[in-house]
Amino acid sequence: MSTRELALPVELPTGAASVPVTVRDADAGAWAMVALAHGAGSGREHPFLVGLAEALAPLGISTARFDFPYRAACRRLPGPAAHAVAAWAAVVTWARGEGVPLWAAGKSYGGRMASMAAAEGAIEPAGLVYLGYPLHPPGRPDRARVAHLTAVAQPQLFLSGTNDPFVQPVAQLEAAVASCRDAVLTWVDGAGHSFEVKGRRRAADEVGAGLAPLVAAFLRERR
């Protein structure tokens, strides 16, 4: 197992900062890299992301798990969206030197920030993967975060649980995905926002690992 720890410099509106990154190299012959961003309440070491990264490695996909600046500064709440976009830009710029196509992926908040960065043109990954896109706050379908998605030019994969309170009613997410230029929606039956399934106890790393085949299949299709 090959793992690297990096600290990438990033310029924020408030000054210089750094983005800590954990790179898990593919076991052999990497043909793609996936940058993995965490959700709002966790960090790059969350077992869900670690499990996904470990499961992608034998499939020929390297990963770069990173912390947003607020997390690196030991703050609990996300900072301005501009800070997250700058972090994404720093990671994608670094990844160009790895020599394989780079895909931007994120759990919940991390994926939404990737979509905003791509919509603004701050990053140009090969495509994007959303692990539980937070379409709206639970119980507030009137506050859908969809306006920018049509501006994303790259292929997009939305992985979402049918019991996720952030995408109820599910028809709203289906309509949002249909409005995108090039997007696919894959439902995980019975899963919630963290892809947990009621009545089925699984560790978070196992849950993350279970999504690896779906992610890898989409990347292969769009190579």
Rank of each mutant, 00 (worst) to 15 (best):
V23G: 01
E45V: 05
R4P: 02
D25G: 08
W31G: 06
A81V: 15
W31I: 06
G29T: 15
T3D: 08
H38W: 02
A90D: 02
T186C: 12
P134I: 05
P80W: 08
L12M: 09
Y109R: 10
F158C: 09
E45Q: 14
R76D: 15
A16R: 14
G210C: 08
H136T: 06
S42M: 04
A57P: 12
D205N: 12
A178F: 13
V10T: 07
Q156K: 13
D25N: 08
P165T: 12
F166I: 05
W94F: 09
A32G: 11
L135K: 00
E124A: 15
R96C: 10
L128F: 07
N163E: 10
F166P: 00
M33S: 09
L12W: 10
R143I: 06
L36D: 00
Y130M: 14
V10C: 01
L56G: 07
L185N: 03
G29V: 10
P155R: 04
V23N: 01
Q156H: 07
V167S: 04
G29D: 08
L149H: 10
G79E: 03
P125G: 12
R220Q: 13
V92C: 10
C180R: 01
A26C: 12
T186V: 14
G99L: 04
G161L: 10
R181I: 03
G192H: 07
L135D: 00
E206W: 07
P155V: 10
P47L: 04
M113G: 03
V100E: 07
D25A: 15
S108Q: 09
H136M: 12
E124C: 14
